[in-house]
Amino acid sequence: MNINPYIIEFLQVAVVIGLAPAFVGWIRMLKCWFQGRTTAGLFQPYRDLRKLFSKEIVLAHNASWIFRFTPYLLFGTAVLAGAIIPILSIDLPLAATADVIVLIALFAIARFFLALAGMDIGTAFGGMGSSREMMIASLAEPAMLMAIFTVSLANKSTSLAEIVQVINSGQMMLRPSLAFAFIAFILITLAETGRIPVDNPATHLELTMIHEAMILEYSGRHLALVEWASMMKLYLFVSLAIAVFTPWGIAVKGSLAGLPAAIGFMIAKLGIAGLIIVLIETGLAKMRIFRVPDFLGVAFLMATLGMLSFFILD
């Protein structure tokens, strides 16, 4: 029995919106365990969001419409991206809206507005955050494109549904090029989602923060939306990595039977992804800002070696 793809689409968007805080909660839990602290539980991010939604907004006098519009846009692009990446099923009606490059550009538009919002109030912190965020994004971009290039060489496509299909059908085991691209992608994910060693999501020390510096002036439901969108962004980047490199277990053609299995696989893979992130975050210290180019240089190198080894070895 088959389900209407639109229903799966709807379900998937609901999963992305609903599970993203739990994923962040899971990472925080793991981190607490690794560092020998008591955890606040898997559902703490939900409680944080609820609290923020019920609070009033305190807005600076000179905040323009850009500052007020940005949280909604961040949320909007994240939801749209959630409808495009094949997370539960390959057969999504909106999947053709964007290939990988467009998807990255969707995140770029969110970042563009967030950086503008950081500059809107006119504080030194906001400007600093924006400036650094754009610097890191600029350097991550070539590495990202190289990784995409490698993947597209192996799959002859940049369309996500097609990539998932090709890799899912086997014949792709043990390819050095994809392994290189995968390592590059992990490094880029850390940079783009503001994790250690590039940015510290938990910091409240002004001079070390990037993402937090931009959103310092947000409060109330605006802040809730920004936080939620950044949780979704992490979730989506991890899902993108899963879809592009290890899609096994995804529902192929909206069959009802495949769906629970797909959800099970997704949760298991997210659990492992969380573990990897936490291992990296506990193992490394946050870098000085001008060490980040070296870090992203390594990501670029990996992606380029992936591209080269595709031609040389595959």
Partner: peptide, 23 residues
């Protein structure tokens, strides 16, 4: 509709922010 309160810039509680301190 939740209340939106306009107020002075927070800026981590620092005071005396001037225009020349902006990026």
């Amino acid at each position: 509709p939740g209340a939106i309160r306009r107020s002075a810039i927070w800026d981590c509680g620092f005071e005396k922010l001037t225009n020349r301190m902006q990026y």
